[in-house]
Amino acid sequence: MARNDDRRSALADAGIRVLAEEGARGLTHRAVDAAAGTPRGTASNYFPTRVDLVAALVDRIEERLAPDPETLAQLKQRTPDRAVFAEHLRNVVRRLSANPHVSLALFELRLEASRRPSVAKALGAWRRRAFEDDVAFNASAGLPGGRIELALFHYAIDGLMLDHLTAPIEDNLSIDFVVDELVDRILR
């Protein structure tokens, strides 16, 4: 079969929607075909196994959540301080908030990773690679905080997004305020 990257991406996007709306148990090739509006069997032609489908979803989530290289370049040109670091974190949260299906699908995959080693392998590899990229960017940009602080920010942002996308405990705090508070308190 000839490779059609646009169709592959559309199927992966449909899989992300299914995962976000139906959870891991609802993620089937048939459900992806229905969500994509493609003939039955199309998803299984592109992703023959569930492991292949999940790997494709992880790849697509990585693509959709990737930072804009121009934005990173602009941040690197500024004087590295807490304000620039906070802007970098707000940019991460904006990307996660702008793609709620992607963020919810990512949470679903993380839960599924606790039950399925193949999901843990695919997701874990990407998360570790993304974390190393964050550490490298932070160091090259001269931003405050090291490896431990960045791990704390990852944990905090994950919790913030889970709260924001599901059942918030506090509706009166803006996300920007929370990010600024995290930066002030973790980088004390």
Rank of each mutant, 00 (worst) to 15 (best):
R8F: 02
A10N: 10
L11P: 00
A12I: 07
L19N: 03
E22S: 14
E22G: 10
A24I: 13
R25F: 05
P39Q: 09
P39A: 13
R40K: 13
T42V: 02
T42N: 08
N45T: 15
F47N: 01
F47Q: 06
P48F: 04
P48D: 05
R50C: 01
A55C: 03
A56R: 02
A56E: 05
D59S: 14
E62P: 00
P69I: 07
T71H: 10
A73E: 11
K76A: 10
Q77N: 04
Q77R: 12
T79P: 06
T79G: 11
D81K: 06
R82L: 14
A86F: 01
A86V: 07
E87Q: 14
V92H: 14
L96Y: 10
A98G: 15
N99I: 04
H101V: 02
H101Q: 10
V102H: 04
S103A: 13
A105T: 08
A105M: 11
L106A: 09
L109I: 06
E112I: 00
R115G: 02
P117H: 10
A120P: 05
K121L: 13
A122P: 00
A125L: 09
R127Y: 04
N138C: 12
N138L: 03
A139H: 11
A139F: 03
G142R: 07
L143C: 04
P144Y: 02
G145Y: 04
G146W: 07
E149V: 06
E149H: 03
E149R: 05
L150E: 03
A151V: 12
L152W: 08
H154R: 15
Y155T: 13
A156E: 09
G159K: 15
M161H: 11
A167H: 15
I175M: 14
I175D: 14
V183H: 01
R185H: 12
